[in-house]
Protein backbone atom coordinates (compact mmCIF):
# COMPACT_ATOMS: atom_id res chain seq x y z
CA UNK A 1 0.00 0.00 0.00
CA UNK A 2 3.07 2.12 -0.19
CA UNK A 3 1.62 5.20 -1.87
CA UNK A 4 -1.55 5.49 0.16
CA UNK A 5 -0.21 4.56 3.56
CA UNK A 6 -0.09 7.32 6.20
CA UNK A 7 -1.58 9.81 3.76
CA UNK A 8 -4.89 10.19 5.61
CA UNK A 9 -6.17 11.17 9.06
CA UNK A 10 -5.73 8.92 12.10
CA UNK A 11 -8.75 6.69 11.84
CA UNK A 12 -8.40 5.68 8.22
CA UNK A 13 -6.86 2.31 7.45
CA UNK A 14 -5.88 1.37 3.95
CA UNK A 15 -6.01 -2.30 3.00
CA UNK A 16 -6.91 -4.59 0.14
CA UNK A 17 -10.57 -5.53 0.25
CA UNK A 18 -9.64 -9.15 -0.18
CA UNK A 19 -7.39 -9.14 2.82
CA UNK A 20 -9.87 -7.13 4.87
CA UNK A 21 -12.61 -9.67 4.28
CA UNK A 22 -10.22 -12.47 5.21
CA UNK A 23 -9.28 -10.65 8.39
CA UNK A 24 -12.91 -10.02 9.33
CA UNK A 25 -13.89 -13.61 8.70
CA UNK A 26 -10.95 -15.07 10.56
CA UNK A 27 -11.72 -13.10 13.72
CA UNK A 28 -15.32 -14.19 14.01
CA UNK A 29 -15.57 -17.88 13.23
CA UNK A 30 -18.79 -18.82 14.98
CA UNK A 31 -18.76 -22.46 15.85
CA UNK A 32 -21.51 -25.00 15.83
CA UNK A 33 -22.27 -26.06 19.37
CA UNK A 34 -22.58 -29.82 19.43
CA UNK A 35 -20.62 -32.41 21.33
CA UNK A 36 -20.51 -36.17 20.99
CA UNK A 37 -18.39 -37.48 23.85
CA UNK A 38 -15.78 -36.53 26.43
CA UNK A 39 -14.09 -34.07 24.04
CA UNK A 40 -17.24 -31.98 24.33
CA UNK A 41 -16.46 -31.43 27.99
CA UNK A 42 -13.09 -29.96 27.03
CA UNK A 43 -14.78 -27.88 24.36
CA UNK A 44 -17.15 -26.54 27.00
CA UNK A 45 -14.18 -25.79 29.25
CA UNK A 46 -12.54 -23.95 26.37
CA UNK A 47 -15.69 -21.89 25.90
CA UNK A 48 -16.06 -21.15 29.61
CA UNK A 49 -14.55 -18.20 31.43
CA UNK A 50 -11.04 -19.52 32.17
CA UNK A 51 -10.08 -20.11 28.54
CA UNK A 52 -12.84 -18.02 27.01
CA UNK A 53 -13.18 -18.67 23.29
CA UNK A 54 -14.97 -15.36 22.85
CA UNK A 55 -11.55 -13.73 23.02
CA UNK A 56 -10.98 -15.19 19.59
CA UNK A 57 -14.38 -13.99 18.41
CA UNK A 58 -15.78 -17.48 18.65
CA UNK A 59 -19.36 -17.73 19.64
CA UNK A 60 -21.32 -20.96 20.00
CA UNK A 61 -24.33 -21.18 17.71
CA UNK A 62 -27.00 -23.78 18.19
CA UNK A 63 -28.01 -23.97 14.56
CA UNK A 64 -25.82 -25.19 11.72
CA UNK A 65 -27.26 -22.43 9.52
CA UNK A 66 -25.64 -19.76 11.68
CA UNK A 67 -22.31 -21.48 12.16
CA UNK A 68 -19.05 -21.21 10.23
CA UNK A 69 -17.03 -23.88 12.01
CA UNK A 70 -18.10 -27.34 13.04
CA UNK A 71 -16.03 -28.76 15.89
CA UNK A 72 -16.53 -32.51 15.80
CA UNK A 73 -15.87 -33.15 19.48
CA UNK A 74 -15.98 -36.84 20.21
CA UNK A 75 -16.59 -40.36 18.99
CA UNK A 76 -18.56 -40.47 15.76
CA UNK A 77 -20.62 -43.63 15.64
CA UNK A 78 -22.01 -45.00 12.39
CA UNK A 79 -25.46 -43.87 13.49
CA UNK A 80 -24.15 -40.35 14.10
CA UNK A 81 -22.00 -40.23 10.95
CA UNK A 82 -25.04 -39.77 8.72
CA UNK A 83 -26.29 -36.99 10.97
CA UNK A 84 -22.89 -35.27 11.10
CA UNK A 85 -22.89 -35.27 7.32
CA UNK A 86 -26.39 -33.85 7.20
CA UNK A 87 -25.48 -31.10 9.67
CA UNK A 88 -22.41 -30.22 7.64
CA UNK A 89 -24.52 -29.94 4.53
CA UNK A 90 -26.89 -27.59 6.33
CA UNK A 91 -24.10 -25.12 7.13
CA UNK A 92 -23.71 -22.11 4.87
CA UNK A 93 -20.52 -21.66 2.85
CA UNK A 94 -17.74 -20.87 3.64
CA UNK A 95 -17.59 -23.63 6.23
CA UNK A 96 -14.82 -25.34 8.13
CA UNK A 97 -14.47 -28.52 10.16
CA UNK A 98 -12.21 -29.22 13.09
CA UNK A 99 -11.71 -32.87 14.06
CA UNK A 100 -11.14 -32.71 17.79
CA UNK A 101 -9.47 -35.63 19.56
CA UNK A 102 -8.37 -39.11 18.53
CA UNK A 103 -11.86 -40.46 17.87
CA UNK A 104 -12.85 -37.80 15.38
CA UNK A 105 -9.38 -37.96 13.80
CA UNK A 106 -9.01 -41.71 13.34
CA UNK A 107 -11.40 -43.67 15.51
CA UNK A 108 -8.98 -43.44 18.43
CA UNK A 109 -9.37 -46.25 20.96
CA UNK A 110 -12.04 -47.81 18.71
CA UNK A 111 -9.64 -48.06 15.79
CA UNK A 112 -9.43 -51.82 15.78
CA UNK A 113 -12.47 -53.30 17.49
CA UNK A 114 -15.14 -50.64 17.47
CA UNK A 115 -17.52 -52.11 14.93
CA UNK A 116 -19.92 -49.18 15.28
CA UNK A 117 -17.39 -46.33 15.20
CA UNK A 118 -16.51 -44.27 12.16
CA UNK A 119 -12.73 -44.39 11.72
CA UNK A 120 -12.20 -40.68 11.40
CA UNK A 121 -14.76 -38.04 10.56
CA UNK A 122 -12.83 -37.17 7.37
CA UNK A 123 -14.53 -40.18 5.78
CA UNK A 124 -17.81 -38.26 5.64
CA UNK A 125 -16.85 -34.55 5.75
CA UNK A 126 -13.71 -32.65 4.68
CA UNK A 127 -11.58 -31.70 7.68
CA UNK A 128 -9.50 -28.51 7.90
CA UNK A 129 -7.71 -28.92 11.22
CA UNK A 130 -6.98 -32.03 13.25
CA UNK A 131 -6.47 -31.58 16.99
CA UNK A 132 -4.72 -34.55 18.60
CA UNK A 133 -5.33 -35.65 22.17
CA UNK A 134 -7.63 -37.90 24.09
CA UNK A 135 -9.26 -35.61 24.91
CA UNK A 136 -7.21 -32.51 23.97
CA UNK A 137 -6.91 -29.87 26.65
CA UNK A 138 -8.59 -26.52 25.95
CA UNK A 139 -5.16 -25.07 25.10
CA UNK A 140 -4.78 -27.65 22.34
CA UNK A 141 -8.20 -26.85 20.96
CA UNK A 142 -7.39 -23.16 21.04
CA UNK A 143 -4.18 -23.83 19.14
CA UNK A 144 -6.21 -25.69 16.54
CA UNK A 145 -8.59 -22.77 16.28
CA UNK A 146 -5.69 -20.36 15.86
CA UNK A 147 -4.40 -22.55 13.05
CA UNK A 148 -7.82 -22.38 11.46
CA UNK A 149 -7.79 -18.60 11.80
CA UNK A 150 -4.44 -18.51 9.99
CA UNK A 151 -5.94 -20.62 7.26
CA UNK A 152 -8.96 -18.35 6.89
CA UNK A 153 -6.73 -15.28 6.95
CA UNK A 154 -4.72 -16.63 4.03
CA UNK A 155 -7.79 -17.05 1.88
CA UNK A 156 -8.48 -14.52 -0.85
CA UNK A 157 -12.22 -14.73 -1.49
CA UNK A 158 -12.28 -12.05 -4.17
CA UNK A 159 -9.18 -13.10 -6.08
CA UNK A 160 -9.86 -15.13 -9.17
CA UNK A 161 -8.34 -18.54 -8.84
CA UNK A 162 -5.66 -19.34 -11.42
CA UNK A 163 -6.36 -22.45 -13.44
Amino acid sequence: MGMLENRFQDNVVVAKLDKLIGWARSTSPWYFQFGLACCAIEMMAAAASRHDLERLGMMPRSSPRQADVMIVAGTVTMKMALRVKKLYEQMADPKYVIAMGSCATSGGPYWQHGYHVLKGVDIVVPVDVYVPGCPPRPEALIEGLLKLQEKILDERPLTRKMA
Binding site: M78, A81, L82, W111, Q112, H113, Y115, L118, I123, V124
Partner: peptide, 11 residues
Protein backbone atom coordinates in the same frame (compact mmCIF):
# COMPACT_ATOMS: atom_id res chain seq x y z
CA UNK B 1 -20.78 -51.19 4.70
CA UNK B 2 -23.30 -48.95 6.33
CA UNK B 3 -24.97 -46.48 3.94
CA UNK B 4 -21.93 -46.60 1.70
CA UNK B 5 -19.43 -46.13 4.53
CA UNK B 6 -16.97 -49.01 4.67
CA UNK B 7 -16.57 -50.69 8.05
CA UNK B 8 -13.06 -52.11 8.28
CA UNK B 9 -13.02 -55.41 10.15
CA UNK B 10 -9.58 -55.64 11.69
CA UNK B 11 -7.12 -52.90 10.90
Amino acid sequence: TYHGIAIPKVK
